[in-house]
């Protein structure tokens, strides 16, 4: 008689283990900025990454975003090790798994809001199907930009641009969105509006978010807070939870 099957817990969405990052490796001025970080993020989590300037937040986000390579450690996305993949493989993985929202919006100024949002589909499939276009319109309409689809980024306010950037990051429904100071360049009202939008999208699409922020107000509204100080994780828990 065979033993009853044991349900395997689902693999975390991303899993980092002993991540180290050094610059100027092998040179007299070699400096390690991340000292063996380990953490994971599951499907549907909404986490904040906080820490003072120079603590290594952006470097960590770039490594998680496959934009930078780690010096040592292991990084698995949905169970697959990505450390050591070549540039093309990393790029294709980034394309299918990740969405980005940057502090300075970083929309393409030559493209309208709608075109910016359809760009990921165009990049992936070489053309924009009517269904893709409709989906982009629906996302833009859902975030209150139904009347501004044909405007160029230069014609939109900072808050509106950031909303377009969120729409672009979410349009292909990646499992994880990485946001680097998404409200850092906005006034308080726009900041609240953009954050509320991210929370709404998280709730609607069950997309995981990792948000780098300096704003303690926003961090407090995240489900989980990772705090980085001098390249070390000093807190990983609920927003108001105790230190590690």
């Amino acid at each position: 008689m065979s033993a009853p099957a044991v349900a395997t817990p689902p693999a975390p969405l991303i899993e980092l283990d002993g991540i180290r990052k050094s610059y100027n490796v092998g040179m007299p001025n070699e400096a390690e900025v991340l000292h063996g970080l380990s953490f994971s993020i599951g499907h549907g989590e909404f986490a904040a990454l906080i820490g003072p300037s120079g603590s290594g937040k952006s470097t960590l986000l770039n490594i998680v975003g496959l934009l930078e390579r780690m010096t040592a450690g292991s990084y698995r996305i949905e169970g697959d090790e990505v450390n050591g993949l070549d540039d093309t493989a990393l790029t294709l993985r980034r394309r299918t798994t990740l969405g980005f929202v940057f502090q300075f919006h970083h929309l393409l100024p030559a493209f309208s809001a709608l075109e910016n949002v359809t760009l990921p589909a165009l990049m992936r499939e070489g053309r924009i199907t009517p269904a893709r276009r409709e989906r982009a319109r629906a996302v833009l309409a859902a975030i209150g930009l139904g009347d501004s689809m044909d405007k160029r980024p230069g014609e939109l306010s900072g808050g509106m641009q950031q909303r377009v950037a969120i729409a672009r990051a979410l349009v292909l429904e990646p499992p994880l969105v990485l946001a680097d100071e998404p409200t850092g360049n906005l006034d308080t009202a726009s900041s609240d509006e953009v954050f509320a939008l991210m929370r709404r999208m998280h709730a609607e699409l069950n997309t995981s978010f990792l948000v780098v922020t300096h704003d303690p107000r926003l961090a407090a509204r995240c489900d989980r807070v990772l705090e980085l100080v001098d390249g070390r994780l000093v807190h990983d828990g609920a927003a108001a939870g105790p230190a590690l």
């Binding site: 540039d87 790029t91 294709l92 980034r94 970083h106 990049m123």
Partner: peptide, 16 residues
């Protein structure tokens, strides 16, 4: 430069 960086971050390959 910045636009190229954005495109690469969004998943544009070096070939593209």
């Amino acid at each position: 430069r910045r636009e190229i960086g954005i495109l690469r971050a969004m998943g544009a390959t070096q070939g593209q």
